[in-house]
Design a protein around this nucleic acid. Sequence first.
DNA 1: CCGTCTCTTGACCACTTGGTCAAAACGCTA
DNA 2: TAGCGTTTTGACCAAGTGGTCAAGAGACGG
Lengths: 202, 202
Amino acid sequence: MNKPTRIQTENRAKIAAAALEVFAAEGFRGATVDAIAERAGMSKPNLLYYFGSKEAIYRAVLERLLDDWLAPLRELNPEGDPAREIAAYLDRKMEMARDYPQESRLFANEMLRGAPNMSDVISGELKALVEETAEVIRGWAAAGKIAPVDPKHLIFAIWSTTQHYADFDVQVRGLLGDDGEGRFHDGAAFLKTLFLDGLKPR
Amino acid sequence: MNKPTRIQTENRAKIAAAALEVFAAEGFRGATVDAIAERAGMSKPNLLYYFGSKEAIYRAVLERLLDDWLAPLRELNPEGDPAREIAAYLDRKMEMARDYPQESRLFANEMLRGAPNMSDVISGELKALVEETAEVIRGWAAAGKIAPVDPKHLIFAIWSTTQHYADFDVQVRGLLGDDGEGRFHDGAAFLKTLFLDGLKPR
DNA sequence: CCGTCTCTTGACCACTTGGTCAAAACGCTA
DNA sequence: TAGCGTTTTGACCAAGTGGTCAAGAGACGG
């Protein structure tokens, strides 16, 4: 394993960026190596010189993005005020839906297909992280700071509502009337009232 | 336009069922006409005798399902008690996620690709239905029966949270631990407390 | 049970697509 | 700047795919 050259680093990055765009827009089967190569500004054989196969590109992109994707959840602070933490998490997830919709769609595509390349992540890293977060939420509920709800379903609800604005963007835009970026702001505001009031201890 | 024969009716139905399975599992590009034909128990040329092209099958399936898909929203009763109506809508959507996950995934795939075959529906039929429902919700809020929230974002939240259990089924199952069908029941219970408490007038 | 219209399919075609390969072009270091 | 490892690509291939077609098999009313 030699240290990669400058050209290698550059081209791998270029390819990964192009692949993200194409995979997110077309799905794995819909994406073609030619299309990725073209968007990366190089020939197909050259692209395959860096990543041996279409599968390899796909997996590399998936892996590269995973950490960024899970970062917001990791930043959740167990010591913080629950309402503040949940609001902040919603905001962060909403920002990601706005600023990185392709990443969201890539993962959505993967899930829809049954996560053939992520089953290990789901049952490993992701599961551990969710389990940990669920424990934090349970603690908040036990301390009477939020209503006693099922933590995992709460997490699912936060994921689905926020990612919806990226994955179903066409629908959201179509139904709201085109509004610049206002939908993300309004959506975040709505979700914060929904979750904060919905989780208030009684 | 002659009346279709018995064989035509049967075979069109067989094809539509097979196509739904394949398209939902693989996406439009990932699905092959051969695969659909095999699952429908006939040869590829025979299938193409009934539907002239892959696109035609896809669009037929999409159209055939649309009404069923929107039925729950249509059943919402403007005169009813808001809390009851919303709870019932959540339950119905959750049942559909459990009983018709393929339909959900088919639509999710279509949205992810930018809804190339549904833009007219979104800006037409669906938009009208949503606008109408939003008006109902606004009425509830004006009457002080629920908190004054943005109706469309509320609708998005209901859609996304419920459909999540179909579209991201692998993830949900992986993170909850396989549980038979309990996740749908628990999810529905959580969502009802979330939405009903979250929307309580204050 | 015949004739006609419907249905079915094997064989085939053109095109796309993932991937290979040999050879040329390039870039770095001594 | 010569030499050598790295990078790049045109040409090519085999498999897969959507779709066609002509001819045979089947259904069914008279």
